[in-house]
Design a protein around this nucleic acid. Structure first.
Lengths: 269, 269
DNA sequence: AAGTGGTCTAGACCACGTT
DNA sequence: ACGTGGTCTAGACCACTTT
């Protein structure tokens, strides 16, 4: 990324002013409202660089001193920008080693988006069985949610997640075909690990945030068959929109969770 | 709060050393691992002060400069402690005015713990109808969750929340009687606003965090009657443990949500 | 004008990891 | 020994609010 010009509000003005001019500061104070703090601008530039793939997930980004030199600000200002990105889990700081782009390939982060925990016993990774992976046209609502035009191609995946051999989740996943060209049932099946890890490694799309809507529904005959339960049984329905850097929606997903032996954990803060 | 002695790791040592001594630093480096950063210690002291009610919800805490003087550290160190507490919603910063203790009496925060949003239309505050408020003995599980002894007194509240006149939630709430002496159905009914606002104002207990477990269940005849639906209908069951300052659990709550016209919203970050 | 939190800088030193 | 992020300090100035 090239060195971008920064907007520095009145601080900028001051830097260009000689010391004798400083006795008349604040002449541009009224303009300040339109500007954002330096660290926010730098945060934005870092997000843009991540979005453009300047540094891949798992890689180290330049050191704070290097970034400070690149952006022509102090280390403290870079630190504040990086602090916020680390708090949002876009970056991970490791003392003594550097700052790294967050990746879905890591024990700690791997199942951050899977909120099912067992009523008893240890949390364990699920097994995934892909039932179908088809290309189809986006309907109006899907197009709207994903920022596509109605009729654009999407990849529709259906899969079942099992814990200890028992089916617990049916996922219906919709991805913009333009971003995930070549994704197939074979690729999905041969890949071990979480789906977001695959999408990150093979297609360069890193999910960093999601919004969910939860409701309780009765199992249709379709879902009851897939989950091996009787129809009408209560299921937790989870509608998710996932976003990559810069808040671009890139995944639509509906999960039906069987919560007999698992629950959806959440923290209110 | 009196000025507490701080543990300052090797920085502390340095402060007591003359300049000439500084040529031999690090002699206590091995001990450092057992200490925590100054700003964490100050954060802890602030939380303790909040827990002890030194400043009430809605009130301003001392300015950063005053706190820096009290704790004998720089303003920047206080700032970092306060920043974290603001991020956790224990404090609220207001530029030009001061830093305030978060309160449940505020449009922005009032329904932070109510995650139900309507499928269509504007979010609106619920109406609460208290069905019962009784004193009873804690069973083993309740006692464990609330940190009580089995058999300790708890106050059991049942209420129905309605949106636009339609019942949507049945809440069963359990509170340690020792903390909420005198709480009655009358008080609950006469109070307008969220329950947490009442508990904060009348009993000085401020809820700052909660953990929830969500499952889908079939409505029992009891709940179906209360919600005006047929038995067996899917409901979203929400088990909550709420915590006050310093992570003390002070409320146990089970909600049964009717999600025909509302959904439980959640953000994964 | 005075006081508050917000931003930015500069420099020192500590803790951790690698070389 | 060196480079990384982590902590702490000190000082300057900005933005907002109240007096």
């Amino acid at each position: 990324m090239a060195l971008c010009a920064k907007i520095r509000a009145s601080t900028f003005t001051m830097k260009l002013m000689s010391d004798s001019d400083r006795s008349h500061p604040g002449s541009l104070a009224k303009l300040t409202a339109a500007f954002s703090p330096l660290y926010q601008q730098i945060k934005g530039m870092l997000v843009r660089a991540l979005d453009e793939g300047e540094w891949k997930p798992g890689e180290a980004i330049p050191s704070e001193m290097e970034l400070a030199a690149r952006f022509q600000v102090s280390q403290g200002t870079v630190r504040k920008a990086v602090d916020e990105l680390a708090a949002e889990h876009l970056l991970i700081r490791r003392q003594g080693k550097g700052t790294f782009v967050a990746t879905h390939h890591e024990a700690k982060i791997r199942f951050r988006f899977l909120r099912l925990a067992p009523n008893s016993g240890e949390q364990q990774p699920p097994q995934s069985k892909v039932l179908s992976c088809k290309r189809q046209r986006a309907n109006a609502e899907m197009a709207r949610s994903l920022g596509l035009k109605a009729g654009d191609s999407v990849i529709a995946i259906r899969r079942v997640l099992s814990f200890a051999g028992k089916a617990a989740v049916v996922d219906d996943i919709f991805l913009p075909a333009a971003l995930f060209n070549g994704l197939s049932a074979d690729i999905l099946t041969s890949y071990v690990g979480p789906l977001y890890g695959l999408l990150e490694s093979k297609f360069g799309v890193n999910m960093v945030r999601a919004e969910e809507k939860l409701t309780a529904v009765a199992a249709s005959t379709e879902f009851s068959t897939l989950l091996g339960i009787e129809a009408g049984k209560p299921l937790l329905k989870v509608d998710r929109i996932s976003y990559t850097y810069a808040d671009r929606p890139v995944e639509l997903r509906t999960g039906h969770y069987l919560t007999d032996h698992y629950y959806y954990r959440n923290s209110l803060i």
